[in-house]
Nucleic acid binder design. Structure first.
Lengths: 194, 194, 194, 194
DNA sequence: TATGAATGAGCATTCATTCAT
DNA sequence: AATGAATGAATGCTCATTCAT
């Protein structure tokens, strides 16, 4: 047996850690944070319960890692959006992407929304989340400015809040409002030339 | 004939029940429903765990009592609104009342928002909440119709979602957005003649 | 053994103690001792929980009272049997009465049988039960002697055990054995002239 | 690869599981299923409450394990019996073994008897127990058929019931009946040529 | 790095019993 | 003799976390 290189160990570590995060993400997205036990995650990841505590000191630590991973989704959206030619299309894309996302990742969205209400309890997360919102808002603002809005910052906040609120209502009472029509109304509102 | 009078018993009941509800409200608002245990509530209320089950058959039953109490706030708003002369003023009042309410009852609002994300877990509550939302939406719709909006139902949903979303963001990251300005923007948007 | 007078029955109905015992008997017979709560008994008897402790110092005390009452059933059988002309008919009657009783008072029988297995835990009851068995056995023995059996005492024990055993099996797995046929077999065995 | 070897883990499991079953058996036999708490069993086994749920998913599961173990005793009897040359001897052996068993395993027998009265409450067990009884009865029937009885099935049931009934009486009031004589009477009854 | 047996505090709920009146 | 609010210990069960190896 040749001695393992530091690289190999590192790769294993990353592997196990990655498998754990992936498993936790999947389970928590489907069932929520409280309803997902460490034992389930370990089983899903094909790893022992004990090992999880080598990488994450608590269940909450795992949660933070998951939220980090969730940010990747935002990135994906941003990348695609960069290819679109004008601000109206970009906003249209944001709206459509949001609806698509929270309807197709309902439990995940539910978890993140619930989490955001407890954000004060997780100081580590607070900063990350705030930076994210800040970034998004600044970007939305620039879009609204390009479109010639009077108060692009307020519009940016409002659009963000409205999308969050729609997700919230969808997740609590389902599609009572006619989501497709709602989406169209929103697009009409924001993407027409002023 | 009874060794304690009916009045005495009634007083005891009202007293104890009130203490329990108050304690439960305070704790659940601060920590959430799941993170609040029956034992904590009993301790805070200065009452034995067992007694709670004289008044509420389950933990969920206690929750329902609290939410019912919350509904009273909505009634208060509705009653005041009825005295206002025209739809634009009514909508203005709704917006102002909402901002006022979620900033001055932050922990309460946090609880209700978090709860709405778990509403599927509380079958007893689902129906009550949905009926309430339905009623409010219908009323908002009539206001927008009176104001001559093309699609008053969609506008009603949108306003509700936006207010929820603003509360959500306020509760998670605080007043990063300039709530007062936001409120004005919203009022301008909705209460001007078309 | 005079029959109960109408006065005695009336008194029981009016009398709180009587109502409690009657209620306890009914509930425990239907649902068993453990599954019957003091609160249920009080409700059924139309009496407060507190009052029950004026008459019975514990739930077990109530149990003893019930078993006493159960003895009345045995008396009823004895009285009827006394009118029958010969030992074979008496034994036939005992057998038929037993089958009739444990099939029509299944939960009551279940409770008494279960109780007899715990008899050591209720010293008060032990003596009563033993006296009862002793009396019955002596009587059975005299019947078998009259019928000319070699070892009437053993036959008496055996018949008692067999009837208990049949009740036990009926109560645990139901009528897998064909109770009617079983009864006939038993009658043929014991009531034919030797 | 594992840091404790599989063998080590296996040994721990067997050890702990055995201690739990032993403790549960002792306590339930003495006090009954309902009167024995998980906490008591854990204390008696020198194990934490939580650990019990590594091995038995519910209290009833533990019960099933105990009853399964009891079934082994029946097997022992069956195996020995198979070596006997003729049906009369086999029946004699069954009778002697039964007496031997319930007098020397009194508390165990008490538990199983009490349990059989509650079998409806344990759906898992119902089927197992019924299958076992069915098998035994069929076998007894074949013995009585070989001995030329008219109605071997009824005789099989009757013998089973009588043995159960004798155990019941022995366990509730002790050896008032002269068990040795009783055994002889029973053997005389069943094992003589017709 | 990795295991999984073991822990123990915690959970919601039940119920026989007490007690001030 | 009678009430029923109040108690508190107990129940079966869960699960994040620890630890010897």
């Amino acid at each position: 047996m040749p001695p393992k290189t530091a690289d190999q160990f590192e790769e294993m570590r990353v592997n196990a850690k990655g498998r754990i995060v992936t498993a936790a993400l999947k389970l928590m997205a489907n069932n929520g944070y409280h309803a997902t036990s460490i034992a389930q995650i370990a089983r899903e990841a094909g790893v022992s319960k004990g090992l999880m505590y080598n990488y994450f000191s608590t269940k909450e630590g795992l949660l933070v890692a998951i939220v980090d991973q969730a940010m990747a989704t935002g990135l994906e959206m941003a990348n695609h959006m960069a290819t679109l030619p004008d601000p109206a299309l970009k906003i249209k894309f944001i709206i459509e992407f949001s609806f698509q996302w929270f309807t197709h990742n309902a439990e995940y969205a539910r978890m993140l929304l619930a989490l955001s209400l407890k954000v004060g309890m997780f100081p580590q997360m607070q900063a990350v989340v705030e930076a994210k919102i800040q970034g998004a808002t600044t970007f939305y603002e620039s879009l609204f400015r390009d479109m010639g809005y009077d108060d692009p910052l307020s519009e940016a906040f409002l659009l963000g809040a409205t999308l969050d609120g729609l997700a919230l209502q969808y997740l609590s009472v389902g599609d009572k409002m006619g989501l497709d029509k709602m989406k169209q109304t929103l697009i009409d509102k924001y993407c027409k030339p002023l």
